[in-house]
Simulated assay, not measured.
Amino acid sequence: MSVAKEKRSRIRAAIRDGALREFARNGLAGTSTRAIADAAGITKAQLHYYISSKEDLYQEVLSFIFSEWRALFFISSAQDDPETAIRAYITRKLRHAVEHPEFSRLFVNEMARGAPEMNEHWPKLKAATEEASAVIRNWIDEGKIAPVDPLLFQINMWAVTQHYAEYEQQSRVLFNVGPDQPLDMSRINDEVTQLFLMRCGLLKAELVT
């Protein structure tokens, strides 16, 4: 990659990341291009050189979020045994929620206003969810896990793991953790993992310590 292309790539990434933070904090309507430029460390004129509109940039950020989530979180392979797959999924999801809370916060803000910008993204989400449901149904059919509703099992895992991004301040208050202290992710990960492994019959309640 040439020096010029590398520079453009860095600026585009800075714009995307800055926009993600601003949209997560203030929503589409409440975010100005000036704020995005400041967050990206560039001038407003430079920003408008790289984007066609704030709305198009918002769509780009949504696409980036779903691309990241698709790569990291959807159960898309039956190669791992269920316990290994579920444990790994929960660990990745919790870590990402805590390290990158802006992903979940932007998504929740979009849902709260009726998801008007989601039309082109729903098919990708549904396809990935249906793919994961097929894997879970296969585990059930092969007797590897107890019967569960594959769709609700996924939705419930999303809800529990994303809680620590969407309700971070509540978690800090209840855990008595200050703003500069980390949450006890080992404790959280163990509890969430046990919850879902027990639900699908991979962990007996009396054996949990």
Rank of each mutant, 00 (worst) to 15 (best):
residue 34 R to Y: 11
residue 202 L to E: 09
residue 188 I to Y: 01
residue 93 K to V: 04
residue 123 P to C: 06
residue 19 A to C: 08
residue 84 T to W: 09
residue 135 V to K: 03
residue 78 A to K: 14
residue 86 I to Y: 07
residue 72 L to C: 13
residue 133 S to V: 12
residue 199 R to V: 11
residue 206 E to L: 08
residue 18 G to T: 06
residue 21 R to N: 11
residue 14 A to S: 11
residue 165 A to M: 09
residue 52 S to A: 14
residue 108 V to W: 05
residue 167 Y to T: 02
residue 5 K to V: 06
residue 73 F to K: 00
residue 94 L to T: 13
residue 83 E to Y: 01
residue 46 Q to W: 00
residue 181 Q to S: 15
residue 202 L to C: 04
residue 112 A to S: 15
residue 95 R to K: 13
residue 38 D to I: 03
residue 85 A to I: 06
residue 163 H to Q: 07
residue 131 E to W: 03
residue 39 A to G: 14
residue 101 P to R: 01
residue 75 I to A: 08
residue 172 R to L: 12
residue 168 E to N: 05
residue 104 S to F: 05
residue 16 R to Y: 07
residue 183 L to P: 13
residue 25 R to I: 00
residue 16 R to S: 14
residue 102 E to V: 06
residue 31 T to M: 11
residue 104 S to H: 11
residue 103 F to A: 01
residue 177 V to S: 12
residue 7 K to C: 02
residue 143 G to K: 15
residue 99 E to G: 10
residue 104 S to A: 14
residue 177 V to E: 09
residue 193 T to R: 00
residue 199 R to N: 12
residue 157 M to V: 03
residue 81 D to V: 11
residue 141 D to W: 04
residue 36 I to V: 14
residue 64 F to Y: 12
residue 161 T to W: 13
residue 94 L to K: 11
residue 73 F to A: 04
residue 58 Y to A: 10
residue 113 R to T: 14
residue 55 E to Q: 14
residue 176 N to F: 04
residue 47 L to K: 03
residue 90 I to E: 04
residue 118 M to P: 12
residue 20 L to W: 07
residue 189 N to T: 13
residue 90 I to K: 01
residue 45 A to K: 05
residue 115 A to Q: 13
residue 61 V to Q: 08
residue 168 E to L: 09
residue 6 E to Y: 02
residue 5 K to P: 03
residue 91 T to R: 04
residue 7 K to R: 15
